[in-house]
Amino acid sequence: MVKIMMLTTACVFLLFGNEQQVSPELENDCLRCHQTHNIPSEIIYRRYLLHYSSKETIKKKMVAYLTNPSKADSIMPPQFFDKFPPKEPNKLTQERLQQRVDEYILYFDINKKLYTPKEDK
């Protein structure tokens, strides 16, 4: 019985332990709106990664855009705004905005996703 409980606990940890949890603040301040309007936050992050690579630069660019959003400064192509309306200026304080951006970057963190399978090619 003890063995079965231990195995079940181990399986639960293996399945959900590594998954990044979304903070309620990020959920409230950012992701809820994205989900309501079907704005793909993952695609946006991938484009940031593709263009700016480092977390520091991504954070700087995101904060700059969210403080004063414009089509010209957006990471997304102009066609994106045909489907989704341009974002309004953010009402969050700078400190809070920076915290949310940090949480957003951490949510998609590549470092934790990459791994080498045991069976090499």
Partner: peptide, 26 residues
Amino acid sequence: FSEKLPLFIKKPYQCALFDSDRQLIF
């Protein structure tokens, strides 16, 4: 861009990935 990103590396090669600020990724 799935939850897990497996990177296959042939033996005996070793690999490290860095971002543009030369910070280690993997």
